[in-house]
Design a protein around this nucleic acid. Structure first.
Length: 513
RNA sequence: GCACGAGUAGUCUAAUGGUAGGACCGUAGACUCCCAUUCUACAAAUCCGGGUUCAAUUCCCGGCUCGUGCACCA
């Protein structure tokens, strides 16, 4: 694992991603645009598997969570009510001589202690002038403040003034149509509304490949509940013993080197996690990442400090993972209380209360939100392998995420081997396997190509296949081979991919026969 | 957004004020009874725009993209 800290790890990942069709920049032939990426053929297969995996775990397995698909472009009124129009708009101020940029309210707070949040541009300029605030780095004169909004705006229809914005988070679709979804759920708490989709933020400076981008996909759930029932969440019982890594608020007051390990039950009881609703999702997230090939010791849940969360937060915990480029948030868990429903209720003059325990309540909401691109990148980094015995790199993807699971090769193209292998490949595809056929060049090269994109098992048709109807299965991780009869092949592959059978066991069975 | 650096086939890279050479990958074929390493052939590039010049991939300016640092990350 020593190469984990290699500085150029991200470059190696990017190189494979480009060469083998995982990810490429959008509109590349025109120079592209910073912070926008297209998933290629393999990236799309992986994304599909990731979303399916999440959907099975968080949506389909739960009777009271359903998925919706909301529109990406929403009218201005939504973001006026949600607060994004104000809070997403940062006043920036620039030094006239050295051109450095600062947050106007930050620079004022540093110099005067005045809390300048939410002031108009004129008010900000006035404070800067009156207090003779200069550039912190070169003492130069500061220019006038101007607004920078992180939302992409556009006009809807031919009528000017009908403004719309690309959503900066998927959540708002769910809040604004809350009544519809509550009614669909027969107004019975708790219930969850899930959504997978794109969100957009006009980041000042996109960085680090898939990590800081302007268009990104989220997998998100808004879990609504009666606040009095926050610690009587029945799903929690299934996960309360799950051990998670956690970084508390207190730990962050000093230098911390290692997260604590404790059960989610303890974490909720000690109020490190705000309630059982969030505890459930945190436990599930921890299990999900491990199933996707990310080792448990590489990630933790960090309690967000007050300055990192909105004022209405009832406690947020980010899932952070150690990557070659530093610690990165890949999942956010937010206890948004009733803030969003309250805001939209007021602005739209709607009523969002629900009867629970014979009284009217405005539901609270816990929001687990995952970045698809960030999780995919994390999987790529943790599955990437270089070792002594191979001159090529490979991905140790678990079957749950591997874009292609199996490949079928004829040992050589002649003597009917290719035809035999083709037929086998088609049969396996019919049986539902994600299979890839290749007969070009030599067999070793094909194994290498398969390893490089993380194909788990390569099935090779050789002369013995023609005589005895047996084929070899090559294991990506060990490069060892086992021979199995064709009639057992599908069952064996199923068992291997479902991890009901290890390759070592398959080799053992063979010896005994 | 700012500063500095960089931008040549899919990838890595060489060279040059007279439009580019290699390696790997790829494709086709030969060879080949199991791990990219044989042989032949083929395909593929100077980020975009402007300027200087007889001539620019090369020099200058602007843009775009990438990297690093700063700032930002509701």
């Amino acid at each position: 694992m020593s190469f984990m800290t290699e500085e150029n790890r991200i470059e190696k990942i990017i190189d494979v991603c480009l060469r083998r069709g995982f990810v490429n920049q959008s509109a590349e032939i025109y120079g592209g645009s910073s912070g926008f990426f297209d998933l290629g053929p393999l990236g799309t297969l992986m994304r599909q598997k990731l979303v399916d995996f999440w959907r099975q775990l968080f949506v389909l397995d739960n009777d009271n969570i359903f998925e919706i698909d909301g529109s990406l472009l929403l009218p201005e009124s939504v973001f006026k009510a949600s607060g994004h129009l104000d809070s997403f708009e940062d006043p920036l101020i620039q030094c006239k001589s050295c051109k450095s940029m600062y947050r106007a309210d930050h620079i004022i707070a540093q110099n005067t202690g005045i809390s300048a949040e939410g002031l108009s541009l004129e008010e900000l300029d006035k404070i800067v002038e009156e207090n003779k605030i200069v550039c912190p780095s070169c003492k130069g004169e500061l220019d006038k403040a101007r607004q920078f909004n992180l939302m992409f705006s556009t006009g809807i229809g031919p009528v000017s003034g009908n403004k719309g914005y690309l959503r900066p988070e998927t959540a708002q679709n769910i809040f604004v149509n809350f009544k519809r979804y509550a009614s669909f759920m027969r107004n019975k708490l708790p219930f969850g509304i899930a959504q997978v989709g794109k969100s957009f933020r006009n980041e000042i400076s996109p960085r680090n490949f898939l990590i800081r981008v302007r268009e990104f996909e989220q997998m998100e759930i808004e879990m609504f509940f009666d606040p009095e029932m926050a610690n009587k969440f029945s799903l929690f019982d299934f996960v309360e013993d799950v051990e998670i890594n956690i970084v508390t608020k207190e730990m962050q007051e000093k230098e911390w080197s290692k997260p604590l390990s404790m059960s989610v039950k303890d974490a909720v009881e000690k109020r490190i996690i705000p309630n059982q609703v969030m505890g459930y999702f945190i436990a599930m997230e921890s299990e999900m990442l491990q199933a996707l090939g990310i080792p448990k010791e590489s990630f933790w849940f960090r309690f967000m400090l007050p300055h990192e969360t909105p004022h209405y937060s009832g406690g947020n915990l980010d899932l952070e993972v150690k990557l070659s480029i530093g610690n990165v948030e890949i999942i956010g868990n937010a206890y948004r209380t009733d803030y969003d429903l309250k805001k939209h209720q007021k602005a739209s003059k709607s009523t969002f209360t629900i009867v629970s325990n014979n009284k009217k309540v405005l539901p609270h909401v816990v929001e687990p939100s995952m970045g698809v691109g960030r999780i995919l990148y994390t999987i790529l980094e943790y599955c990437y392998r270089e070792d002594e015995s191979r001159t090529w790199s490979w991905f140790k993807f678990p079957a749950s995420i591997a874009p292609i699971e199996i490949a079928v090769f004829p040992l050589m193209k002649k003597d009917g081997l290719a035809e035999y292998a083709q037929d086998l490949h088609l049969d396996l595809k019919d049986a539902g396997f994600v299979s890839f056929y290749d007969d070009s060049g030599k067999i070793g090269k094909r194994y290498a190509r398969a390893d490089e994109i993380g194909i788990l098992y390569c099935i090779t048709v050789d002369y013995e296949s023609l005589e005895k109807d047996t084929v070899t299965i090559r294991d990506r991780d060990s490069t060892k081979q086992a021979r199995v009869p064709i009639e057992d092949l599908e069952d064996v592959l199923d068992a291997l991919l479902e991890e009901e059978l290890t390759f070592e066991e398959l080799l053992e069975n063979q010896k005994n026969n």
